[in-house]
């Protein structure tokens, strides 16, 4: 599951708050199961948010991140368009979603 909090519309030039959360165990790779076997690392390592073709926010994560990571960041809106959100885990699997935003008239 992915949850995004973003306004549907904004004033021209307004700075908006964006929140993005993804459901993910973020298994660090340091823990062991009941039998003493290492639980393989399974983390989301890369996140990026694009507005149309422009990268707005980008971050790389390590095994210290807690499960179900939540990000809050800000972006200035200069025109109507679409935000594209993408998480990538260590195996290259991508989780994507998008949200359109309009300019208040």
């Amino acid at each position: 599951m992915i949850r995004i909090s973003i306004p549907q519309s904004a004033d021209l030039g307004e700075v908006i708050e964006i929140k993005a959360m993804i459901q993910h165990p973020m298994e660090s790779g340091y823990r062991r199961d009941e039998m003493g076997r290492t639980i393989p690392r399974d983390i989301v390592a890369h996140f990026s948010c694009r507005f149309e073709s422009q990268v707005v926010f980008k971050t790389d994560w390590g095994p210290g991140m807690a499960a179900n990571p939540l990000l809050t960041f800000f972006a200035r809106v200069n025109r109507a368009g679409t935000f594209y959100f993408e998480w990538k885990d260590l195996n290259g699997k991508a989780f994507k979603t998008e949200r359109a935003i309009e300019i208040n008239r």
């Binding site: 599951m1 949850r3 909090s5 929140k19 959360m21 459901q23 499960a67 179900n68 939540l70």
Partner: peptide
């Protein structure tokens, strides 16, 4: 209701 991670399960 956004930051509470339990709502991920509620949405699912």
């Amino acid at each position: 209701e956004f930051e509470n991670p339990g709502w991920l399960w509620v949405e699912r």
